[in-house]
Every structure is written in C-alpha cells, then in structure tokens.
C-alpha cells in the first residue's frame, strides 16, 4: 500500500531518475528494461536502478507528456512497451540538464573551497 513516506522518497529520486530517463531516450525510443540496462551500463554500474521505481517514473513522465509510449516488438521478438521523447520532453531535458550542471558546479565549488569542518574530520 502506498503511503506518504514512499511518496517522499520518490520525490527525492525524481530529479535524477527523470533526467537520466530523458537523457537515455534522446538516443532513440527504447523499452523500460532497455532504459534500466542503458543507465546501469553508461554509469559504469554506479547506479543500480530500482526497476519498480523506474516504471513508476516512466508512467509519471508519460502522464506529464514528456514522453510517449507504444506497444511494439523488441529485437529478440518479445512484446514490449517502447518509450520515446516528445518535443516537450526535449525542452525539459535541456532545462533539467542546465539545472543539474549548475547544481553540481555549485556543489563542487563549495566542496572544493578548502575550508570548513568537514575537511578536518575527513
């Protein structure tokens, strides 16, 4: 049963997982399992994608009309649901990528600044 706490956790992941999905789909349409594998391999197995969350995220993006989905046939002849980016999704990808870059740069600036208690503890 879904509860509020779960929703909060999703919210935390949302930014990153959504962005990763959009980025993966920019290469072309793909099914959910493919997206999971791609993220895992492209991140050099740093990210272990929770499959359940992935499908919920895919559904969410579809609801927002950032991606669209169609049932099709995979390369090894299995039935699968294929996702592709919409125009709206592309715009979002550009925007979110920018946001993420600014965020990581700012984080980097702070963490590399060379003062602060963390360093002594580290």
């Amino acid at each position: 049963m879904a509860t509020r706490e779960n929703d909060d956790r999703i919210a935390l992941l949302q930014g990153t997982l959504d962005l990763l999905i959009l980025k993966t789909l920019v290469l072309g349409s793909c099914h959910g399992q493919g997206v999971a594998r791609l993220i895992q391999s492209q991140s050099e197995d740093v990210f272990l994608v929770d499959h359940g969350s992935l499908y919920v995220a895919l559904q969410r993006l579809e609801d927002r009309k950032w991606i669209r989905a169609k049932w099709g046939v995979s390369e090894n002849n299995r039935k699968a649901r294929f996702y592709s980016l919409t125009q709206h999704g592309r715009e979002q990808l550009v925007e979110k990528t920018g946001e993420w870059r600014r965020l990581t740069r700012a984080m980097g600036l702070i963490l590399d600044s060379g003062n602060g208690p963390q360093r002594e503890e580290a």
Partner: peptide
C-alpha cells in the same frame, strides 16, 4: 487528462514483458 487512463492490467503486462526481456538478457 485527455487520454483514456491506462489500466493496471496494461501496466502489469509491461512488468511481465520487462521480466521476460531481463531474463533473456541474463
């Protein structure tokens, strides 16, 4: 929502497809 709502069944099928694809890969 303008589109008809996706059924839980359709979603369940997608998960089933995922498990099959993943098993194939493995």
């Amino acid at each position: 929502m303008f589109r008809r709502k996706r059924t839980s069944q359709d979603f369940a099928e997608e998960i089933k497809a995922h498990l099959e694809l993943e098993a194939d890969d493995l």
